[in-house]
Amino acid sequence: MMLFILFIFIVIFLIDFPRLIKKKQFKILAIYCCFYSLALVLSILILLDIPVTSPMVLIDSLLKSINLSY
């Protein structure tokens, strides 16, 4: 499973990354890397069964603590 995920991420990497380097669009490249690494890290965390708290749940508990809920 891990290999499969890595394979998909490598394919995604090879589609756009070399072209961006060639065109020297470094600003897009930086944002690209942010998205890419965030997705990669999250998917590895899911694979390793490490619980990830979603922002929705965080906001939910925050609003519940100030009684803003039905």
């Binding site: 998909i8 991420f9 995604i12 669009q25 897009i28 944002i31 998205f35 997705a39 990669l40 999250l42």
Partner: peptide, 30 residues
């Protein structure tokens, strides 16, 4: 919105990593 936020010229290179992020986010969200 992301491309307007960072004032970049093309949003197309961001599509694939963003889709990967959305898939992963949809697994963890609830």
């Amino acid at each position: 919105a992301v491309s307007h936020f960072f004032k970049i010229k093309s949003y197309r290179p961001l599509i694939l990593p963003a889709s990967a992020l959305i898939v992963v986010y949809s697994i963890t969200i609830f």
